[in-house]
Simulated scan of single mutants.
Amino acid sequence: MPSPAVDDYLKTIYHHTEWQTEKITPSQLAVVLGLAPSSVTEMVQKLAAQGLVTHRPYGPISLSPDGERRAAAVIRRHRLIETWLVSEFGYTWDEVHDEAEVLEHALSDRLLEGIDARLGHPRYDPHGDAIPDASGSVQREPFVLLAQAGAGYTGRVLRVSDRDPELLRVLEDAGVRPGATIEVREAAALLIDGAPLALPDEAIDAVWLTA
């Protein structure tokens, strides 16, 4: 049965491995969701009993095929709504996450598919995250985290983390958006579309480039 709490768990587990390979642990899941570890352990056991995740005690958590499909459907709703809010209502990319968190549980499937059609079936949301199609499939390019890009590396911005709205505003002001080109120079100096780029230290762990 539909459950916002279940969907939030599945969405968080799905999102964790989109841009890196390490599976999420119960303690990490508790931190991201802002819940007590005991509550997370209990819910993970329930999800495993429903066949939505696989998990062994003290080990990482993985989505089952059924869990993957359900998570992709929730992610699709969230990212289509974010794209819709930016495209149709003038929201900025640092404002849409919380609105989408509410609306993703309220919109009907019919309205969601109408939004998708009106937007021209977008493949990516405003932050560069891939939007799963109706079957749950996604298209992603190979990527590298800016923090791991060495001197001499040049790549196009694929994705910017939406976790910190304040950092998003800083990156917006600096022109760091999907599609911009970043070049890494010696001593961690950066260029964006050929111009000098100054970023706070935490930004290099929030920007992904083409590999």
Rank of each mutant, 00 (worst) to 15 (best):
119 L>A: 11
1 M>T: 15
210 T>E: 13
123 R>L: 08
196 P>G: 10
114 G>T: 07
186 E>L: 10
70 R>I: 08
99 E>A: 12
85 L>D: 14
159 R>K: 09
183 E>V: 03
177 R>P: 02
156 R>S: 15
114 G>P: 00
132 P>V: 01
3 S>E: 14
172 E>R: 14
107 L>W: 13
17 T>G: 02
176 V>C: 01
68 E>M: 01
18 E>W: 02
2 P>C: 06
129 D>A: 09
1 M>A: 11
148 Q>C: 09
111 L>P: 04
186 E>T: 10
183 E>Q: 12
103 L>F: 12
49 A>F: 15
103 L>C: 09
2 P>R: 14
53 V>K: 03
67 G>V: 05
72 A>C: 01
108 S>F: 08
16 H>F: 13
125 D>G: 13
17 T>C: 03
52 L>K: 08
12 T>S: 04
1 M>K: 13
37 P>R: 00
32 V>A: 14
39 S>H: 05
20 Q>F: 01
52 L>V: 07
43 M>D: 08
47 L>I: 03
83 T>K: 13
132 P>G: 00
112 L>N: 07
28 Q>W: 08
153 Y>H: 12
110 R>F: 09
160 V>Y: 00
134 A>R: 14
49 A>D: 15
118 R>I: 08
14 Y>D: 06
7 D>W: 11
143 F>N: 04
21 T>C: 03
142 P>A: 06
40 V>D: 02
154 T>P: 03
184 V>F: 08
203 A>H: 04
30 A>C: 06
146 L>W: 12
71 A>V: 01
18 E>G: 05
167 L>Q: 04
47 L>R: 00
35 L>N: 03
42 E>R: 15
157 V>K: 01
62 S>W: 00
138 V>C: 02
188 A>R: 15
148 Q>M: 10
91 Y>W: 13
62 S>E: 14
79 R>Q: 10
188 A>E: 11
131 I>Q: 00
45 Q>M: 12
9 Y>S: 10
179 G>W: 04
167 L>A: 05
105 H>S: 14
25 T>W: 02
176 V>N: 00
101 E>W: 08
193 D>N: 15
183 E>D: 06
41 T>W: 02
1 M>H: 15
17 T>H: 03
95 E>S: 12
13 I>K: 02
27 S>Y: 04
128 G>I: 05
125 D>F: 04
160 V>S: 01
199 L>Y: 08
61 I>C: 02
185 R>I: 07
32 V>N: 07
28 Q>R: 13
121 H>C: 04
38 S>I: 03
39 S>D: 08
2 P>N: 10
72 A>Y: 00
160 V>I: 12
16 H>N: 01
190 L>P: 09
209 L>S: 01
165 P>N: 10
126 P>Y: 12
16 H>W: 15
22 E>A: 09
48 A>C: 09
21 T>Y: 04
60 P>S: 06
108 S>H: 09
154 T>A: 15
165 P>I: 10
59 G>T: 00
61 I>Y: 03
146 L>P: 05
118 R>C: 08
135 S>E: 05
184 V>T: 12
125 D>Q: 01
